[in-house]
Design a protein around this nucleic acid. Structure first.
Lengths: 127, 127
DNA sequence: TCTTGACTTAGACTTAGGTCCAAGGTTTAA
DNA sequence: TTAAACCTTGGACCTAAGTCTAAGTCAAGA
């Protein structure tokens, strides 16, 4: 599969795919005789994984470390597992914070609704 | 309250507080005769609100727009409400994506656990 | 009065994560 | 065989959101 197809399939730019490969988020992709990238199913699985993790906010740095360990084989399983645990915990915490903000936004929206229905007045101390 | 106290109270740098004021996330803070910032309770409420929203990922730009509308009085209530609704929906969507990633991380961690207990083998296709 | 420490500003610098560009090589349909 | 559409690279550039620096002002204690 060419870089163009992969870019379309996962809605990432070709530049981003090259960048991910350069910084180690995707192991070196095989080339045709002419030097053109030819993505395998393995590569696609990798792209998809990285895209998902990036969307959730995992850093390039930590993902590159994880992918690099994956390349080194079974001896790195414990370390890889620990990375995932750390990132999962971090993610969970961020989600809990976000939930609080979500609740707060909903509260404020409800308050605006009441103001708009004339059931309440705006107070200058709520921002 | 001085900038130092506010910075400590909310665990933000003094630079960040000045920056937030400069870009309009906090309305102009009053100064002492010597030109030194003196934060009111209103200002503190504002800082706290902005900190919370920034942590959840709302952009400086959208927050500045919201704060600016708040300064303009009651005629902007409808528009402010719409900003909050849009941002809430965006936040909700991001949290749903993050939940999927969280599930996936948990699945992978469980899989590593089984590998470590010798109940399963690593497959090269799971990254 | 002098020193110390906190405050001020404008503006340069930093970091993460891409994005864009120029100059050139490759592939493919006509 | 040649034009169009693709691919390659290195490196410059961009954006968001701060962070740092220099040079100067101010307030309080010895």
């Amino acid at each position: 599969m060419t870089i163009k197809d992969v870019a379309e399939k996962y809605d990432l730019s070709q530049d981003t795919l090259r960048y991910y490969e350069k910084v180690g988020l995707i192991p070196k992709v095989n080339r045709t005789s002419g030097g053109v990238r030819d993505y395998t199913d393995q590569d696609l699985a990798n792209v998809e994984f990285v895209k998902c993790m990036r969307q959730a906010g995992l850093s390039i740095e930590v993902l590159a470390r994880y992918i690099s360990l994956s390349q080194k084989g079974d001896s790195t399983v414990l370390e890889r597992r620990q990375i995932l645990i750390d990132e999962r915990d971090r993610l969970k915490m961020r989600m809990e914070e976000m939930q609080e903000t979500l609740d707060r936004l909903n509260f404020k929206i409800t308050n605006y609704d009441r103001v708009l229905r004339g059931e309440a007045r705006l107070k200058r101390e709520d921002i």
